[in-house]
Design a protein around this nucleic acid. Structure first.
Lengths: 242, 242
DNA sequence: TACGATTATATGTCTAGACATATAAGTCAA
DNA sequence: TTGACTTATATGTCTAGACATATAATCGTA
């Protein structure tokens, strides 16, 4: 006898409740600040138990679409200060996804005690061992990106013996180091002599720069700078309300 | 008599279960691909009902830390192909947050029937009215960014009469148009004569370019290109595992 | 009027069951 | 060996309750 059986219920009930509310928020019918019906009202409307509407509302709260306040009710949240999800694919995956042949070339690899510059770049105080790597990624034999990386061996001792002449350090780290946090800084530069030669572009051509600093629970793992020809590369970020 | 009462239970039970599992994944104790104990095993271990462990596991699945497969079990997921949350602050907020004086200047505003180029840029087929705006944002009187924007009036009719000589179109839209989806493309260029003059930089200097295309439920709202001096501006994206 | 105590209430969490459903694994025949 | 059928099982969803807890609203008092 519940409404659930009356309406088309291909998706599950809690999903339909969530979608219903989401739609009203997205269309602006329920603007930011608007109070969503109480759980017991939704229970009556959908003819289901409270746990079911609770699950729908909890997921909306987790997605930051609504805010739940005890005793007060649930409210539509103001659109989040512009934020976008930037998908930064593994370079190899990115290139093969474009249907192009991936090429990798190790240019330089050195194991050394961290210099002052290295420590600064990694954000560590005490001097330990590091690996410095420079390599080039290419698509169909055309230079695609130059990678300049520093790995902290006190965090990733295995990196000392890893063979980076075949496997890019990014892929290796992805498979050998569990979960991380990272911070990216994106900027633009013009190619100097050295960069231009490495990327096979003209001196003075624009380059997109991504500096990525990676750590796990307050422990530095790696710092990397990626240089892309600015006119050929595109970073795409998508965001969906909230 | 449940274990819940025996151990310190400051947070709630399902949160502790979730945290326990999350910790093992983050430390690498349970590597990607590892099968997490079945729900009924966790029920036995924590001495609670299945709904409680189900809630913990569901949230971990929503956070993409684990993958759940019917009949097979739940498995630790491989670190998500690099993804980062890019916070794109409103330019005014960004500048004032830096403790600098925000300046805004409308350079050009024109209401016109969409040209072929406009339609292409907005991704619409039929020709309607649009507003084209060029403006400049500055920090402490120094040019900070040039904004070149197109607003589709069939989606946002109010924009025809909005006063963009005082308020930047970005802020205006944020407050007048509900929830949106957007796609950003980030690239690098070198400044041509026109850009160099507008940003008060040298011709040939690097610029960071953000193209943002915004819509709501398949309806185009606005397309904007933001040009920043590449050496002074930094886009920061952070990501936390998954 | 302002402040402190009380109460009502919406959400937060949890239980002990139930049936649905996708699918890995085993079974058997061609 | 392969393919079709069956079965066991882990997750997915749902119910009808329960008590906990934060807090908005009310009421009483200084």
């Amino acid at each position: 006898m519940s409404l659930a059986t009356e309406t088309a219920d291909k998706p599950t009930l809690y999903k339909r409740i969530r979608a219903d509310i989401e739609k009203r928020i997205l269309t602006g019918e329920w603007p930011p600040g608007h109070r969503i019906p109480f759980e017991h009202e939704l229970v009556a409307r959908y003819g289901c138990s409270r746990m079911t509407v609770n699950k729908a509302l909890s997921e909306l709260a987790q997605a930051d679409l609504i805010e739940r306040r005890r005793r007060a009710g649930s409210f539509v949240r103001r659109p989040q200060h512009q934020s976008a999800v930037l998908k930064i694919a593994d370079i190899r995956a990115e290139i093969t996804a474009l249907g192009r042949a991936y090429g990798y070339e190790l240019i330089h690899r050195k194991l050394r005690t961290a210099t002052a510059a290295d420590r600064d770049r990694l954000g560590v105080r005490k001097a330990g061992k590091v690996v410095a790597i420079t390599c080039r990624h290419s698509a169909d034999k055309v230079p695609f990106a130059i990678e300049d990386r520093l790995i902290d061996l006190s965090s990733v001792p295995d990196a000392a013996t890893a063979d980076f002449s075949r496997e890019p350090p990014g892929s290796w780290l992805l498979h050998h180091v569990p979960w991380t946090e990272a911070e990216h800084t994106i900027s633009a530069i013009v190619a100097d002599d050295h960069t231009a030669a490495a990327l096979a572009i003209a001196v003075g051509a624009p380059c997109l720069v991504i500096d990525r600093y990676t750590w796990r629970s307050a422990r530095t793992i790696t710092a990397v700078r990626l240089l892309y020809p600015g006119d050929s590369h595109r970073l795409v970020a998508r965001f969906k309300g909230g």
